[in-house]
Amino acid sequence: MDFGPFLLLALMEGLVTAAVLALTASGLSLAFGIMRVVNVAHGAFFMLGAVLAWFVSQWVPGPAALSFAAALVICPLIVGGIAALADTVVLKRLNYEPEATIVATIGLLYILEQAALSFFGPDARPVPAPLNFRIQLPWFGYSGYKLMVVVGAALVLLAVWLILRHTKAGLVMRATQIDRDTARAFGINVDRVYAGVFAMGAGLAAIAAVLIVPIQQAHYLMGGDPLLLSFIVVIIGGLGSLRGTLVAALLIGLSDGVISTFFAPTLAKIIATLVVALVLVFRPQGLFGTRAA
């Protein structure tokens, strides 16, 4: 293949990564922006979404599209429920103190991974794609499902944006983000907002996982990379800035696609992690953010 089409393929792969990454990272960003919670268990929520999608695909009979649709509804709900529970039982009692919540979410990460290992097993398992067609370009054929992932992720992100900007719930969330105490004084149930936001963040990770699992099999350790990449995206985009998160996801996803196609993926990851560490050191507000971390 010539360089041009090869680059196009790399960019298309990068776009799929970027779309899923944007979904996952916006969940992390939401929890950080509104609750100031750094959720180390976010990757575990992602993994849980994928693993549950496999269970759903086993239980729901009929065509793959049907079980996929079911997974798209059921998985985020279950994962969100678990997250809300973790928030009420653990994080709230820690008063969202940053260091304590990080330790607690590390613990949560171990517990969830162990649960997946015990009930799902150590093997990677495939989930069938809901649709199976290829788009034939002049140089290569491309999976139609992958393009659907990009469209699906964009739709979900649009919905999140609409909820935050144009609904009462979004208004309440933004009010809580700006000033928790004043929001409480106005009769907003901050505890419920926090539980809801944490659940929503986890649910977004679960949706991302359900979308990606037909391409990349479900495995109990699959949460590591999305967690790391989400951290990278959220930090480069500016902690807590949703728009920055989207831009950064696109940037990181595309460059990850290109770099891992032309160079070693491990090298790409080393460079990305170092860049992030240095961004945090020298520009703690992120490349696009305005608020200090």
Partner: peptide, 13 residues
């Protein structure tokens, strides 16, 4: 791993 995770959560709580 569950023991590690539970120990972390219980200790910090």
């Amino acid at each position: 791993q569950f023991v590690t995770g539970a120990a972390l959560v219980l200790l910090i709580l």
